[in-house]
Amino acid sequence: MINRTDFTDHEWKQLEDLPIIIGSGIVAISRSGAIGKIKEAMSLISGPREAAKQFPANQLIQELLSSEGTKSSQEEDHEKVLFVNDPAQVTGFLMERCREVVTILDSKVSVEEANDYKRWIVASAEHVANTSKSGGFLGFGGKHIDDREAQFLQTLRETLGISA
Rank of each mutant, 00 (worst) to 15 (best):
V90C: 07
T155P: 01
R148M: 08
E112D: 10
F55T: 11
G36W: 00
E113Q: 13
S132Y: 03
N85Y: 13
E79C: 06
K118W: 00
S124P: 02
Q59G: 12
N115W: 01
P56Y: 09
E50Y: 11
G136P: 01
Q59V: 12
T155W: 06
H144G: 07
R49E: 09
Q59H: 14
K53L: 15
I22A: 03
F7W: 02
G139C: 08
G141V: 03
E149G: 11
V111G: 10
L44G: 08
V122G: 02
F137R: 11
D77P: 00
S32P: 02
D146C: 06
S32T: 13
R119C: 05
E40V: 03
G69K: 10
L15K: 01
L65A: 00
G47L: 13
Y117Q: 04
M42C: 14
A52T: 07
I20L: 10
L15G: 02
A164D: 08
L82M: 14
R99T: 12
S124C: 05
S110E: 09
L82F: 15
G33V: 06
G92C: 05
Q59N: 12
I162K: 00
Q151K: 12
K143M: 09
G139Q: 09
A41N: 13
E50L: 13
L94E: 00
E75D: 09
D77Y: 03
Q14I: 01
I22E: 01
A57G: 15
